[in-house]
């Protein structure tokens, strides 16, 4: 199942299982999308009024509904930040508790070839200080599916940041009848070498490809991919303990690093862990360009990770073939099943 299909199926399931679940967005009622035909009383087209359609959803959530609103780009969701951060994000606390506002904000985010500085921002970390909001950033189809189901039942306001870059990623997974408690992270690798690569969102498939190359060359890094940042503790004690098993910690981010999510993770780890070596790979401190050639250089690629891991572990350099334009720029279109074995 592709990433986009997983999101759609999970959304359909929430609408089917609970009549209090509602869906709002632009073009959401277009024929062929599969929503309005099945759920004519639960699906609503919104005007191009992000602030007010988000406020509507906040009001509905405060009265016992579980509305989901979809934004085609984070830049448009920025117009609704008053409602997401100041209203939904403070609702229960400012009204003294016992007044939940389980509004769900599904926001598409991040890189896409040619979309340029105003359609590719990676403002993940902006949400992290909205301390009443659960943040979900799925990296795989199963994570997207299960996180949507989980957040639809939660009484917390929730933000789901969907990376378009992952749209074609494929995964076979079992659809459970019961909605499980979800994990904050997933580990890929056998902990053989003393390095953990911390990723989230769209950096996972790149790190997995780098891991493949490294393993062929007898280097065995471990990847810890973060995907759920709960409201009360953004990084779990379990994840901190896991990271503590490694001396070398490489943080790989497709956002500019400074004060981003992984910069925050590093600062928390520094408070808890002693004698660690931190390294980072990230996009530079400029907006993402439109030009494909500039974009090719802008994002971290698998070769960057391979080279850096060899350097950190003081291993011989590996001869690498160039990362093709297609691989660097276009959506990764492969199955990640083998990584779950």
């Amino acid at each position: 199942m592709k990433f986009t299909e997983a999101i759609k199926l999970a959304t359909i399931r929430t609408l089917k299982e609970d009549k209090k679940c509602l869906l709002f967005g632009l073009e959401i009622t277009n024929e062929g999308n599969g929503f309005i035909e099945k759920f004519p009383n639960q699906v609503f087209e919104t005007p191009v009024s992000e602030l007010s359609s988000t406020g509507l959803v906040v009001g509905l959530a405060s009265r016992g509904f579980k509305p989901i609103i979809v934004y085609g780009r984070i830049e448009f969701a920025l117009l609704a930040f008053d409602q997401i951060l100041t209203q939904a994000g403070r609702w229960e606390y400012m009204f003294g508790g016992n007044y939940s506002c389980p509004a769900k904000f599904r926001i598409q985010i991040g890189r896409q070839w040619g979309n340029g500085p105003q359609h590719t921002a990676n403002y993940h970390s902006v949400f992290m200080q909205a301390v009443e909001i659960d943040i979900f950033i799925p990296s795989t189809p199963s994570e997207a599916y299960n996180q949507i189901l989980y957040m639809s039942k939660s009484k917390n306001p929730s933000v789901l940041l969907e990376h378009r870059y992952l749209n074609l990623l494929d995964e076979d997974f079992k659809i459970e009848k019961k909605i499980k408690k979800i994990s904050t992270s997933k580990v890929y690798g056998n902990k053989k070498d003393n390095i953990v690569i911390i990723t989230y969102a769209d950096t996972l498939p790149i790190a997995l490809k780098a891991k493949d190359i490294l393993e062929i060359n007898n280097i065995f890094p471990t990847i810890l991919n973060l995907s759920f940042f709960p409201k009360n503790q953004r990084i779990s004690n379990k994840d901190i303990s896991f990271i503590n098993k490694f001396k070398n910690i490489l943080l790989v981010d497709s956002s500019p690093y400074d004060f981003g999510i992984l910069s925050g993770v590093q600062s928390i780890l520094s408070l808890h862990l002693q004698n660690k070596n931190f390294y980072k790979l990230s996009s530079p401190n400029i907006p993402a360009p439109s030009s494909p050639m500039l974009m090719h250089k802008y994002y971290v690629n698998k070769n960057n990770i391979v080279n850096y891991v060899c350097k950190i572990l003081k291993r011989k350099n590996i001869t690498l073939s160039k990362v093709s334009f297609e691989e660097s720029i276009l959506w990764p279109n492969f199955s990640i099943n083998k990584y779950f074995k």
């Binding site: 906040v58 009001g59 209203q87």
Partner: peptide
């Protein structure tokens, strides 16, 4: 201006 759309959501509920 925040209260307006919130109230419309309450009205919709």
């Amino acid at each position: 201006g925040s209260s307006l759309p919130i109230a419309s959501g309450i009205a919709m509920s």
